[in-house]
Amino acid sequence: MEERKIDSNRLDVLKELANIGVGNAITSLSQLLSGEKVDMDVPAAFLLPLQDVPASLEGEETAVVGVYIEGKGDVNLTILFVLSLESAANLISALLPGSAGDFDEMGISVLTEVGNILTASYLNAISIMTNLQLLPTPPEVAVDMAGAIISTVLAEARVIDDEIVLLKTSLNTRQTRIEGSILILPDAGALEKIFRILGLT
């Protein structure tokens, strides 16, 4: 195998893809929250050893909510939307008037639908930029320790190369007090394809 080289130029392109994709996703979240402003950090792109991926979330043993979706089609991406328990409860009660934000069936379905809308907006943007077709799988929700969620996602999605490209963006809202991160893990093959389309090989 040729050593997988991702130079700063390519990381920049990934960041820009993440930026536009997540920007789109955040616009959708804002619409869901009746127009409340959603702030986002500039996406970061990392090339990490597989073993260090779980540590990319602060507090591997901290309980969090993870919404996991695979984008499949011309290329494959794995997307994980991570929220603190408090933020997830705030999100549920913001969208379900009168709810205490419990993780019951309806609460989980709110998180599922938000994950679905965020991911789809992201994939729609990627699709427009790259002309690739990408469809999300129905989202899956887990409430557990961050490390367990992310390692399970790696195993389920078979993202197990020795080095992993990880795109991470954090978002937050002031009024509804929601803080979360969106992690995107493209398959190795996905990157090659995207780079080729964007004329970067």
Partner: peptide
């Protein structure tokens, strides 16, 4: 009524017989 607004998908839905396509949210 779908979050997926990708052009090819909208066209496929309409070609399959859907009368309109609304993107969530």
């Amino acid at each position: 009524v779908s979050a997926m607004g990708q052009k090819a998908l909208v066209i496929e839905a309409l070609n399959s017989g859907a009368k309109d396509f609304i993107v969530k949210p």
